[in-house]
Amino acid sequence: MSTVQGTGSELPGADAVAVGKTPSAARQATSDPAPPVLDIHDMTVAYHRRPVLWDVDLTIERPSLVGIVGPNGAGKSTLIKAVLGLVPLASGKVQLFGQPAARQRQLVGYVPQRESVDWDFPVSVLDVVLMGTYGRLGWFRRPGRAEREWAMECLRHVGLADFARRQIGQLSGGQQQRTFLARALAQRAEIYFMDEPMAGVDAATERVIFSLLRELRESGKTVLVVHHDLRTVPVYFDQVALLNMRLVAFGPTQQIFTNDNLRKTYGGRLDILEAAGQALADERRSV
């Protein structure tokens, strides 16, 4: 049985930072004040007469683990998609590491919702992970031996090396989610966007994902995760963005994830609030 949690194994790609190819590392060398990882200014998105996001300003200064939380229809996925250029902005601008997001695609990793693809597709698990390297390859160049080895390393990291040759439809839901994570790792990104990676997975997979998030943060990456389970927010994330069509609050989880803010986000749905408040209290006790 291969597992990842608690192995303390080196995250694939940690060396990439050390080599100094990434903007953050390069800037540290010249001791400039680093531009924020992500800077969203005045973002408004509207679908057919209906505004979905209004005037969102969000700046993530330093690499961290950010949870995006809010009720259904609050525009959480839309926020991610707008940053990635998948939905058009009515107004606003998005910068990654001080540059317009459209020019920084190679620094971005994406984990879409699991249902967004056809799992009957005739590709192997390794093929899917290899797709993560396509962004850096560019048009026409094919993945070679180096990419293959890299993809295998990413697969090994999520504990799926033995399944590399399987058709993706033969995986369980949790394994499919881990395949997506391996693909994101293969992107060698600096900032990751994950759309509900923990939705509908078993507890073991959730632990694997969580430990992976931790590792990513420790190697200096930024991860934004759309998350639906309020109880685990204080455990998982350094910072939290509360979203309901507009940004209700953003900041360190300990300060922001308060009953008051949650009420501003969710309204008077006390059952959720109580559960969340309880979780927060537990977390504070344990700290």
């Binding site: 967004s116 693809v117 093929d127 048009w139």
Partner: peptide, 18 residues
């Protein structure tokens, strides 16, 4: 490569710049 990527996951393709 591009056809495979776009057929499987058009969103990922777009986010990568294809």
């Amino acid at each position: 490569k591009e056809l495979k990527l776009v057929s499987f996951d058009p969103r990922l393709a777009t986010s990568m710049g294809y």
